[in-house]
Nucleic acid binder design. Structure first.
Lengths: 238, 238
DNA sequence: CGCTATCTTGATAACGTTCAACTATGGTGG
DNA sequence: CCACCATAGTTGAACGTTATCAAGATAGCG
């Protein structure tokens, strides 16, 4: 729950949040957490492993629109929007917590700092989505992939799930292909390039970045869109 | 302000919203509304014309990440996130309203239905962003462009800025290229294809869709991500 | 009327796809 | 412990989509 970079939380806030994490729930590989069109009763929070937002097209293609790591909410928006416009699944297994809608409503009305942090979480999700769009539109597959790796390293580090230069990365090349919007064959070839340039090593489900600074420079990585610097401009409002 | 599909507003709510629209402000072409890195004091709302979110890369490339039409907010998030992670501009001139941060804070705390509608607005922005990602990742340039045209028709219709099959579309082919993530030359060729198939006419800054149903079928358009159906599942919460 | 932007066209090259086959790898049951 | 199987990763060749570069045509604006 270290994800709360979005607001200055008090000890009491942390205790409230900690209580939520009781009943975890194992989601097995290839099982969806929520399907498109559903109206889930609970809000889901990833605790361990990866999940992803995705859409299937009528021709069978799949686009992964977000990778959710520990601390990320799957469907905070469902209380406002009617039904899901995409699915959330995990091809790799993950554990998550189900939080009743009522609890979320309570948090947002009675715990202003937590409400602010949740607000922050959805806004950084949106910032990430924008950066992914830039990534797909303007960067070639090699830099796009490098950019994703840099992002994941930073995001996983902030929740204690990555060390200095590596992290567990259990997804397949096909999944990565659906994330980047290219074919699995091309992913394979780009990976070989990155390996040949001594930028990364990826084996036995662990991705290691051999020289983080060089990889960041390679893809022109700027983490400002993650909004991780704890805000300096006072708490404003509220 | 018809954009309030997100909640059932009362007459009083509407009056409050209407009062905001007093001091409109003309933004000339090529003038930014907000630049990346800024911390704007006001929240901006588009009243007429188009604006866009964009990022510039170090190599001079530009990606447009959103087209903002009348009724869209530019920077509702700025009270929570520290600084802008992208710029907002208009290459075409538009009029917008500046709403002080304090007013927004007042709305969100004292007018629950309006707060809900604002919440809805940012969530549909996010949904749109996700659909654009699918569009770029999985669809060829021709279908991608068709999809964008379908989306704009629907969005502009909901705010009374489009008729049955056409709308003002003052942007250049280059701008469209930066939106779709392709080159201007390719945009030109794709447009010719769409024209040759009698799907669209685009001249003197007006885009007409000759057969809306055929264009929607062509690009497999499903507007569910815009969440425009006024919600039927009760007002829940609050 | 002329200037500048934008749009259009052609030729060539690069990036990414497709299809098909082949090679690892990891898990399972014998 | 090994043989087997299914899945994931790798390779090659041909093809299609989009990029690049450069030039020419059109249209909008003062």
């Amino acid at each position: 729950m270290k994800l709360e970079h979005g607001a200055h939380l008090t000890g009491e806030d942390r205790a409230v949040l900690h209580d939520l994490c009781g009943r975890t729930h194992q989601v097995s590989a290839n099982e969806d957490i929520i399907g498109e069109g559903e109206r889930p009763e609970n809000v889901h929070l990833v605790m361990e492993g990866f999940a992803c937002r995705y859409k299937l097209l009528s021709d069978g293609k799949r686009q992964i629109m977000a990778l959710l790591v520990p601390g990320d909410f799957c469907d905070l928006h469902i209380a406002i929007l009617g039904e899901m416009d995409h699915s959330i699944g995990t091809g790799w297994g993950c554990t998550c917590v189900k939080i009743p809608r009522a609890t979320i409503n309570d948090l947002t009305t009675n715990h202003p700092r937590i409400a602010r942090a949740l607000w922050w979480a959805t806004l950084t999700d949106e910032g990430t989505l924008r950066e992914w769009l830039v990534n797909m539109g303007q960067r070639r597959a090699d830099k796009q992939m490098a950019h994703l790796f840099c992002e994941l390293l930073v995001r996983l580090q902030t929740v204690g799930c990555a060390d200095e230069d590596s992290f567990e990365f259990p997804i397949s090349q096909s999944d990565l292909a659906d994330t980047l919007g290219v074919t699995p064959v091309h992913v394979n070839r780009v990976l070989q390039e990155l390996r040949a340039q001594n930028l990364i090593v990826w084996r036995s489900k662990r991705l290691q970045i051999l020289n983080v600074e060089r990889l960041k420079a390679f893809c022109d990585f700027n983490p400002n869109y993650l909004h991780l610097t704890r805000r300096a401009n006072g708490d404003s409002s509220e």
